[in-house]
Design a protein around this nucleic acid. Structure first.
Lengths: 197, 197
DNA sequence: TCGTCGCAAACAAACAGTCGTTTGGAAAAG
DNA sequence: CTTTTCCAAACGACTGTTTGTTTGCGACGA
């Protein structure tokens, strides 16, 4: 019987989602057992089910929380009343800041979402599409207003921007030389002006 | 007893590595069981151990094979006697072509290498560093010769190039509108000239 | 202040399977 | 006849989840 559990944000549940984010990001979803989770919280395996319905529900919570944060921070930048290069700059800064403030949840969002069952995957994809549309809007309007080159392949340009942002998880480690803001700044400069002289 | 198995490239073993690449890329390393592998090959679980020493050995083979291919194709481009922008262009084309020709092994290389035990991880990291150094050389020489901007943050620039290349796995699906060569071309143009006019 | 009720949280134990791996012997190949 | 390949069976450990029961605590009326 697929037990449905209180969607409340009880302190204990929040604690579980946070522990899950850490473990899933370190060991992967399939590499993390309910035993690992229970150990991290000082409980027995079975006791977790007083707070959650299933392991997958926990994965979904982590992934969805990550997606939600990106959408909200991204919209602020995309909705700005400013030239496209500025909006792109603000967008990238927001992205890098968000990614780094929530490294663990973000890592799970990018690497483990595909282990969700089909229905839940669709919900995640929908949010990912919303985020991508924000970038696309910035690029398209930049081209329309003559702030970006008119010969851009829009789709590939959007992909390049997202590549830069999402690959953060593969290399950034806390305590690096650059602040999140600096990384965002430099990326947008690099993207807008290019490597050439 | 940690059985060590013939490192030969017997046909049956090659077939296993290929099946492992497919399954690991689809279901992840921990999400793939020896049972899945055996089913794919029409064997029983235990029979696999006539050809391999362990599941992890299989993962290492897939990952290492992927890394090797990138290094070899990358060197051809990095060693060219040509202006840096041209070498970068050739490098990106080679990268995208390699990635797409071996989508499955490449996906495993990027997503699953972290599940290797420490010793094997180090070997993979060493090869990854070799590849990164190839990009770095192109960028540094481009700056030194005045072909790229002199105010580049070299490390971050290298990271951006690798981001573009590695994120391929997240979005490319066979049968897309662009050929691997076109993707490489457009990426290098975008990176060198930037989005701005 | 006391007893006791209700309730959520956690335990203890078990469910039916699956995990990666090893072993001994049969079949197949050369 | 030797060597490789595979099966059949088992190893002990672990999987996610469910169950019945116990624990501790706040609210309650007297």
């Amino acid at each position: 019987m697929a037990q449905v559990i209180d969607r409340t944000h009880s302190p204990r549940r929040v604690e579980m989602v946070r522990a899950a984010a850490r473990l899933f990001s370190e060991r992967g979803y399939h590499g993390t057992s309910m035993q690992h989770l229970a150990d991290a919280l000082g409980l027995l395996r079975g006791s977790l089910y007083a707070h959650i319905g299933s392991k997958e529900e926990l994965l979904y919570d982590v992934v969805d929380e990550g997606a939600q944060r990106f959408i909200e921070r991204g919209r602020e930048a995309a909705d700005l009343d400013a030239p496209a290069p500025d909006r792109l700059r603000r967008f990238l800064i927001a992205h890098v800041e968000t990614a780094i403030e929530h490294l663990e949840a973000g890592t799970v969002f990018l690497n483990e979402w595909r282990y969700l069952s089909d229905g839940l995957q669709d919900e995640v994809k929908a949010k990912r599409d919303i985020y991508e549309a924000q970038v696309r809007r910035i690029i398209e309007e930049g081209v329309a207003r003559g702030e970006f080159r008119s010969d851009l392949d829009i789709t590939l340009t959007v992909t390049l921007v997202l590549s830069a942002g999402n690959w953060i998880y593969a290399w950034y480690r806390p305590g690096g030389a650059l602040t999140p803001t600096q990384i965002g700044e430099k990326y947008s400069d690099l993207l807008v002006r290019g490597l050439g002289r």
